[in-house]
């Protein structure tokens, strides 16, 4: 079976008017039907890349093809194939949810799209807000409406720019379920995110962009393994900590304050950590997965050091 390329980016450069070099010869190929993650820190070039594909930003040089069509020579056709969910949650405050989606359909040349609009609203749990003005939606609802807007014309490629930033856990998991279903139905999805966990959960392949360059591209599992999927545990004690307990020294223990300690370890060592904590009686424990920012800090320190 031959794979058709959904997105093909070759030697893409973007230099903004003020001289900021946002993309430096970026290359990427995403196959049709893939659920692909593009990870990168703030200012890494993710949004610039998406805005070039979508239209608001002009590229300096390079080529982008969407389903085989060059965006320079087939601008309107390639726009029709893309559904873009932008990072910023902004709406046309003159209209209600149904009007916004009807307009979106019209822009893509679709007449009488009400049935499909209702279907999307139902799936995104927005049906009871159908006639509510977009100003009166909660943050989570607005995020879902952005996804509805991007899907209303049945695009071939869905591009989501950090769709779960600032979204609560329940909504995040609901969105993941919905996106998985869309992908299963054949939609190619490019997801940009800060969160390794999100990429791990959803995407088979992941690329990492840093300072406008592709710095890593592999299967997500392999990539996460190579980056080291550390957990960070913060321990709070009622009494002042004197010396770091010897039992914790193997877990990169660090004093954060007189009362707080942090540990870093791999998930497989969790039992060993819990064993080591016996007898220390911390007042509070907090466990966090490392996010990409941490990984990047480590990577860049390593590279610069």
């Amino acid at each position: 079976m031959t794979h058709i390329t959904a997105i093909k980016i070759q030697d893409l450069h973007k230099i903004y008017h003020k001289g900021t070099y946002a993309l430096k010869g970026f290359n990427l190929e995403i196959k049709q039907g893939e659920f692909f993650a593009l990870l990168g820190p703030n200012g890494g070039g993710k949004s610039t890349l998406i805005n070039i594909m979508a239209g608001p930003t002009k590229k300096t040089s390079g080529t982008i093809k969407i389903c085989g069509l060059n965006i320079d020579t087939h601008r309107e056709e390639t726009k029709s194939m893309l559904g873009i969910v932008p990072q910023e949650v902004n709406f046309d405050s003159f209209f209600d949810v149904n009007e916004v989606l009807t307009q979106c359909s019209g822009y893509y040349g679709i007449k009488n799209n009400q049935k499909y609009i209702d279907e999307i609203l139902e799936k995104l749990n927005l049906h009871d807000k159908k006639f509510a003005n977009t100003r009166f939606l909660s943050g989570g609802m607005k995020r879902r409406l952005l996804i509805a807007k991007a899907l209303v014309h049945k695009p071939k490629v869905l591009v989501l720019d950090e769709p779960t930033a600032g979204v609560d856990v329940e909504l995040r998991h609901n969105l993941w379920t919905y996106l998985r279903q869309l992908n299963k139905d054949g939609l190619t999805i490019l997801l940009t995110t800060h969160y390794l966990e999100e990429a791990e959960n959803l995407c088979k392949r992941t690329a990492i962009i840093h300072q406008g360059r592709l710095v890593a591209l592999d299967e997500t599992k392999k990539l996460v393994r190579s980056l080291g999927n550390y957990k960070e545990m913060t321990l709070n004690f009622k009494e002042k900590i004197g010396k770091i307990p010897a039992a914790l020294e193997n877990f990169q223990a660090k004093k954060i304050s007189d009362y707080d300690l942090s540990l870093n370890f791999e998930p497989k060592d969790l039992n060993k950590v819990l064993e080591a904590l016996k007898g220390l009686n911390p007042a509070d424990i907090e466990l966090q997965s490392q996010d990409l920012e941490d990984v990047f800090l480590k990577l860049t320190y390593k590279n610069n050091g």
Partner: peptide, 14 residues
Amino acid sequence: YQGIIGDLLSIPLK
């Protein structure tokens, strides 16, 4: 002001 000028530039209109 509303931050939706990007929408205008993203729709498939000449």
